[in-house]
Amino acid sequence: MIELEGVSRSYGDRRVVEDLSFTVEDGAFCAIVGPSGSGKSTSLRMINRLIEPSAGTIRIAGEDIATLGLTRLRRRIGYVIQSGGLFPHWTVEDNIATVPRLLRWDEARVAERVRALLELVRLGHETRRKYPHELSGGQQQRVGVARALAADPEILLMDEPFGALDPLTRQALRAELARIQEATRKTILFVTHDIDEALLLADRIAILRDGRLLQYATPQEILTRPASAFVREFVGGAALGLKLLAQRRVRDHLHPGAAPAGEPVAQDAPMSEALSEMVLRGAEFLPVRDAGGRIAGSVALADMLR
């Protein structure tokens, strides 16, 4: 559990972060969002003490991090940055093995861990001998994530990790991250300026502006009860309703039994996708298929409004 209490950071007269307080539960995915200059990265970097707070306390698992040894703290936290920061002079394998080797794991254990992680981030086993410059941007970020997870830290800090990638790769990696989080149940703090990314991935979202916390709540709550006009605008403004729809899954509104004809929509798809299909086909009802591909039932336009 990560607790921030009254955390502030100033540079001279400039207040970059002011009185930040919120709690992230174990295993939760917390997104920190906000416009540029809102203090998101600074907040994140105060957790692994790359930046020291000017005021306030940060606690991890009840311990005040200011009292913990710097390197011991950081070796317990995984850190992924936008440009990856992979060591260019080391192979993928050596990069991933960085923290385990620092912790003096024996080589057999390290090799096994590298193998497991490459599998987790869906990179081929032959990648381990390659150098970072031989990989694409997306592959490099996968290695970055693997490296952060190498020593099995409780917490993962991610600072706009997908910002430098093209939209298609970003989409793929988002899905990967969601899957990994599902599998490993790490506590993740994820900084992004893309609210849609946050709405998609996070259990809780912290919205920052000019260093202040505007709202800290679940995506559902932020969409239905934005704390201010700014939050409302930032989160979607006119498209709020559609975003709310995107938060719901087809399977939650499934009518089992008979279904109309036509290409079915997946039951795991967001309701916004179902709406889009209905608009394209001019139909008020769509067939739904389950994970196995069998027709499971139908979904109705009227369900969108409930």
């Binding site: 970097r45 692994n48 790359l50 710097l70 390197t71 011991r72 703290l73 950081r74 070796r75 317990r76 936290i77 850190y79 940055i81 936008q82 440009s83 990856g84 920061g85 992979l86 060591f87 260019p88 960085t98 923290v99 620092l102 970055g144 490296r147 952060a148 800090l157």
Partner: peptide, 14 residues
């Protein structure tokens, strides 16, 4: 490169 140094520091290298 600065990102490399930052990543190294963030990972807990002295």
């Amino acid at each position: 490169p600065e990102p490399v140094r930052e990543a190294a520091e963030g990972m807990g290298l002295t």
